[in-house]
Amino acid sequence: MADHYKSILVAVDGSKEAEYAFQKSIDVAHRNKGSILNIVNIIDTRSFEAYERSIFDTAQKQSEELLNGYKARAEAEGVENVKIVIEYGSPKSIITNELTNLVEADLIICGATGLNAVERFLIGSVSEAIVRSAKCDVLVIRTP
């Protein structure tokens, strides 16, 4: 029997690339019965230093709405174990270092060019960083 993934982490950020990754994560969760689907959004706090609390609160609210929407969709499509996780900091280091351990992921799914609305100049580098430093399998989704 092929390897069975137990804890799947999919990183979402509201981009269409993340949408493709989410769709694929549903398929993978279905093929790995009993697995947990961890839907993760990272609030990039590096961009907030010069701003006030309200911007941070807005970002957190948007993150919660995004994740709750994805969770509802995953459950509607029959995925039984869905967790949502909001983390704060640099997406690159958070996904590769902290999150993988936190949810004990054995598979990370991400879009090819994770697009962060605040820091568009980072395009592409988040998925590259994940591939370079993740301790588990990584599935980079390029197309719908």
Rank of each mutant, 00 (worst) to 15 (best):
Arg46Pro: 03
Cys136Phe: 12
Arg46Glu: 00
Met1Asp: 10
Arg46Leu: 08
Ala29Tyr: 09
Met1Phe: 12
Gly89Ile: 10
Tyr70Val: 10
Asp3Gln: 09
Ile94Pro: 02
Ser127Asp: 01
Arg73Ala: 08
Glu19Pro: 04
Thr100Asn: 00
Glu17Gly: 15
Asn101Ile: 12
Glu128Ser: 07
Gly14Met: 13
Val140Cys: 14
Ser90Val: 15
Ser90Lys: 14
Ser25Asn: 08
Ala76Trp: 14
Ile123Val: 06
Ala134Val: 05
Phe121His: 08
Phe48Ile: 11
Thr96Lys: 07
Gln62Asn: 15
Leu115Ala: 04
Glu128Ala: 07
Ala29Lys: 02
Ile26Tyr: 00
Val79Thr: 04
Ser25Glu: 08
Tyr70Phe: 04
Ala134Cys: 07
Pro144Val: 11
Leu139Thr: 05
Ser63Thr: 06
Gly78Trp: 03
Ile123Phe: 03
Asn101Gly: 02
Leu66Tyr: 08
Ile130Cys: 00
His4Ser: 00
His4Ile: 09
Glu19Met: 10
Gln23Ser: 08
Thr58Gly: 08
Val28Tyr: 13
Ala21Gly: 06
Ile42Met: 07
Leu115Asp: 05
Ala11Gln: 03
Glu98Ser: 07
Glu128Met: 13
Leu9Gln: 08
Phe121Met: 11
Lys61Cys: 09
Thr143Met: 03
Gly124Met: 00
Gln60Pro: 00
Thr96Met: 05
Ser7Leu: 02
Ser7Val: 10
Gly124His: 01
Ser54Trp: 14
Val140Gly: 10
Arg46Gly: 05
Asp3Ala: 08
Arg142His: 12
Gln23Leu: 12
Gly124Cys: 08
Glu87Lys: 13
Lys83Asp: 15
Ile86Lys: 14
Asn41Glu: 02
Asn81Tyr: 15
Glu119Arg: 14
Leu99Val: 12
Asp106Val: 12
Val140His: 01
Ser35Thr: 08
Arg142Trp: 09
Cys110Ser: 13
Tyr70Asn: 04
Ala29Arg: 05
Leu122Phe: 09
Glu128Asn: 06
Gly69Leu: 03
Ile42Asp: 04
Ala76Phe: 09
Leu139Asn: 06
Leu99Trp: 11
Ile94Gln: 07
Lys33Ile: 12
Glu17Gln: 12
Ala134Gly: 03
Val103Asn: 04
Gln60Arg: 13
Ile123Asn: 03
Ala134Lys: 00
Gln62Thr: 07
Tyr20Phe: 15
Ile43Arg: 05
Ser47Ala: 14
Glu128Thr: 14
Lys135Pro: 03
Asp137Leu: 13
Tyr88Ala: 00
Lys135Val: 12
Asp13His: 11
Glu119Ser: 15
Glu64Gln: 05
Leu115Gln: 08
Val103Trp: 07
Ser15Val: 05
Ala76Leu: 10
Tyr70Met: 05
Ser63Leu: 06
Thr100Trp: 14
Ile8Cys: 02
Pro144Thr: 10
Cys136Ala: 11
Lys61Tyr: 15
Lys24Pro: 13
Arg73Gly: 05
Gly124Gln: 02
Ser47Gly: 15
Pro91Asn: 05
